[in-house]
Each structure stands twice: as C-alpha cells, then as structure tokens.
Amino acid sequence: MGLFNIMNISGTGMAAETVRLNTTASNIANANSVSSSYEDTYKARHPVFAAALDQASQDQTKGVGVNVLGVVESQKPLQVEYAPGNPMADENGYIYKPNVNIVEEMADMMSASKAYETNVQVADTTKRIFRRVLQLGQR
C-alpha cells in the first residue's frame, strides 16, 4: 500500500536525523572534557547517511529511504594545551581537549531538527490523507 510506504520513508528520515541529533548532543556535552593522552580524548562523532537503494528495489517502492551506515570519529587534530596545574595533565604538563567545533555542532543541530520537522510534516500530511481515504463514501 503506497501510503504506508510514505510513512516508512519519513520514518527512516526521522530515525536518521535522531542519530544526528544524538551525536551532536554527545559532541556538545563532551566539548570541554579533558584527558591526559591523545588516545583517551573524546573525538567528535558524525553519522554517515546513505540512500537505502537495496531495500527500495526489493520492496518495489519508488521512494528511497535513508540509512545510517555508521558513526565515524572526526580526524581533525585535537587541541593540546599546556596546563601543568590541571590534575589531568600528563608528565610534560599537557592536557588534551576534544576536536569538537561548537559552532559547527550548533549549525548541525539546527539542520537536523529542521529536517526532522520536515519528515514529521510529511508523515502528518500522509496521515490526514489516509484518514480521508478511510472516510470515502461514508458521509
């Protein structure tokens, strides 16, 4: 049934945007956490989106949903700060801060919430139309 496919597709969109909001929340929450080694430091995470083409051709649908292939850690260099007074400082007096760019994350958050909203509106419109179909010929 075609109208249910629309619900499924907007559902995949909502799920994907939720993952993006989730990683953004995690990035912002950990933006100021420090650690004493390069490996232990939090690195910014970002989801990788891809169109779910396999599923679309299997289900004979025309619309294509979205898949989250995975979450990758940012490869940008970390911020290394000289702070010998910090209890987390290593033997040379350096602390390591995450490579999270707060401004970038905020923009990402806005984009994700707008995209989520769009998907909700698509599902809402579909629901209203479906209700009209069910009432066909009743009044």
Partner: peptide, 12 residues
C-alpha cells in the same frame, strides 16, 4: 508522494 518523501528523507 513516495518519491518526494524519499527526497525529503535524503535531504542530508
């Protein structure tokens, strides 16, 4: 509508 909802889901 299916195709367009797919476009919107893949907006990013």
């Amino acid at each position: 509508m299916e195709v367009i909802s797919g476009n919107l889901a893949n907006a990013n």
